[in-house]
Simulated assay, not measured.
Amino acid sequence: MTVGSWERAVREQVGLGRLLPLGAAEDGAWIAERAAAGALRRAAAGVREARVTGLRVGPAEDAVAAGGEAGSDGSGSGAQSADGAGNADGAAAGVGPAPVSALPYGELRIAAECDAAADRPMTATAEALREALLRGAEERLGLRVAAADIHVTGLLETPPTAAEPGPPAQGTGTATDPGTSTSTGTGTATGTATGTSTDTRPSTETRTGTDARTGADARTGTDTRTSTGAPAGTGAPAAAAAPQVAGVLDGGVLRDGDHAEVRVVVDSAYRALDVALAVRARTSAATVTVLVTDIR
């Protein structure tokens, strides 16, 4: 890859926004925050008593404002697993440099703002939403999330249906209105109560499974839906197509000497971390990092 093409790729990567670490440091995988937020919104859509209006994910030790989320689209529920054990030549590739704008590895915190049904206690709604987000982060993505803060900022007269994830948040910064209601994770919520609902949940990883729709084992890489070139919408140049792995919809490999950075668009039916591990295992390079740019 030429210097000019690599610089263009870096500019495109910066356009993806903040990148969140997937799994552990040795996994060498990241995901665009906007892609993760979209998947978490879909996970939260099952809580009919709440409608998410803002969602951010950041380092656990930092205070994360929920109102400045980058939008994402797509639909889907549940996640299949892809196996990432071993690579094409039987040796594990090393983890290369982190992508531009990537957060360092460590636990994360979700901050979500929502409107809640007026006919149900806010604390119960906040707890249900927190559970859905933590479960989604683990089962759909593979994020290591230490806590989730839920802020109830408005009331719903009629709960939305499960198919309605709610409109994406607009603008930046915290969207909390001082005059609105906020639910706490403990105690009794009232019309003027403020606070957050926070809890911890250990992360687990499942790295085996098969493609239920094709019957192909994820190890074989026989997913024929993988296309060539760079991930759709990124405009990044690619020296080669991403490895054919179940769960990859689109992708490309950017090479810089002995290092390869693989950018992929992941099917929402698959767990993002498992797909990233399978991609790393099938990429031939001294060091490999994987970046999930979108989930559809």
Rank of each mutant, 00 (worst) to 15 (best):
V3K: 11
V3G: 12
V3P: 15
G4R: 11
A9I: 08
E12D: 09
V14E: 11
L22V: 01
L22H: 00
A25S: 07
E26F: 05
W30M: 01
W30K: 04
I31P: 05
I31T: 06
A35H: 06
A36W: 04
A43D: 04
G46K: 01
E49Q: 07
A50E: 02
T53A: 02
V57M: 03
G58P: 00
P59F: 00
D62A: 15
A63E: 08
G74W: 06
A82Q: 03
G84S: 09
A85Q: 07
N87E: 15
A88S: 13
D89P: 03
A92F: 06
G94R: 12
G96E: 05
G96F: 05
A98M: 04
S101P: 09
Y105C: 09
R109V: 00
R109L: 00
A111S: 00
A111Y: 00
A112E: 02
E113Y: 01
E113D: 04
R120M: 07
T123Y: 12
A126K: 08
A126P: 11
L129G: 04
R130I: 01
A132Y: 05
A132G: 05
R135H: 04
A137F: 04
A137P: 03
E139K: 10
L143F: 06
A146T: 06
A147Q: 02
I150D: 00
H151N: 03
L155R: 05
L155I: 04
E164M: 07
G171K: 13
T172I: 08
G179N: 11
S181E: 13
S183Y: 07
T186Q: 14
T188S: 11
A189G: 12
G191T: 15
S197K: 04
R201F: 03
P202Y: 08
E205A: 11
T206F: 14
T206R: 14
G209F: 10
D211E: 14
A212C: 08
T214R: 08
T214D: 14
A216I: 12
R219C: 14
T220Y: 11
T222R: 13
S227K: 15
S227D: 08
S227H: 11
G229S: 07
A232I: 05
G235M: 15
P237N: 13
A238C: 12
G247Q: 07
V248G: 07
V253S: 09
G257P: 07
H259T: 11
A260S: 12
R263Y: 14
R263S: 11
V264C: 13
A269H: 14
Y270Q: 15
R271S: 15
L273R: 10
D274H: 11
V275S: 06
V279C: 07
A281W: 12
A286E: 15
T289H: 06
V292L: 02
